[in-house]
Amino acid sequence: MSGAADREAVFPTRQSLGIMKAKLKGAETGHSLLKRKSEALTKRFREITRRIDEAKRKMGRVMQIASLSLAEVTYAVGGNIGYQIQESAKSARFRIRAKQENVSGVLLPAFESYTTEGNNDFAMTGLGKGGQQVQRCRETYARAVEALVELASLQTAFVILDEVIKVVNRRVNAIEHVIIPRTENTIKYINSELDELDREEFYRLKKVANKKARDTAAADAEMKEKKAQQQLLLESGQENEVPAAEGPDTTTDILAAEEDQDVIF
């Protein structure tokens, strides 16, 4: 299994070897880039974690002050003014702008809070008594909401970054432990296959060369024999010219002499 699974299904050709080599190079570049991205994100992530910690502590303090100031309002007004406040609020005084921040290709939402000036819907609540407490309570709660908004944008960034870092790390690991070894394996496989082919080719060529050499040797031998016979004939013709002049004699001789020779072609 390991041998088959660890490489890609390609034909072991020189072309695919070239493709694989390009792929390996790409994977290595990508790996180093992603690694750097992941490091940048992690750095940012740590910073955000630290700021979340600070913001949460701050929120704890601010909320404590705020709820105490609400207690003051209850003390001063001597009753529940929640309903009046709710009904007299017409438009939002405290608003939020959403921005996007780009951290190595990750878009993080950042919330920015601002107060619209001159929007004071319940300025007159508690006119008779407790008005100052109501206003002060509003101020402290505005601060509390500010802290909450800051915390909200940090938390959102935290969650998104966490997700992105996981994805990036998964990619880095995938490239490092799967894609690069697999491509290397494929290259090795292609190389070995090509070598094998080379060897086969070499062997075949050798065989062919052998055969050719043998054939040539055989042909040479035949030729030599022929020559030797002709020599013999010539010599015998010189001895008795008459039989040499007589055709039928020579033909029968040739046939007789070539009786044991196989016809190869």
């Binding site: 004071n120 300025a123 007159m124 508690g126 006119l127 008779g128 008005g131 100052q132 206003q135």
Partner: peptide, 14 residues
């Protein structure tokens, strides 16, 4: 009440 109303009305449209 008079004093409170006065103090609380500073900065409002009253």
């Amino acid at each position: 009440r008079a004093i409170n109303i006065t103090l609380n009305s500073f900065g409002t449209e009253l």
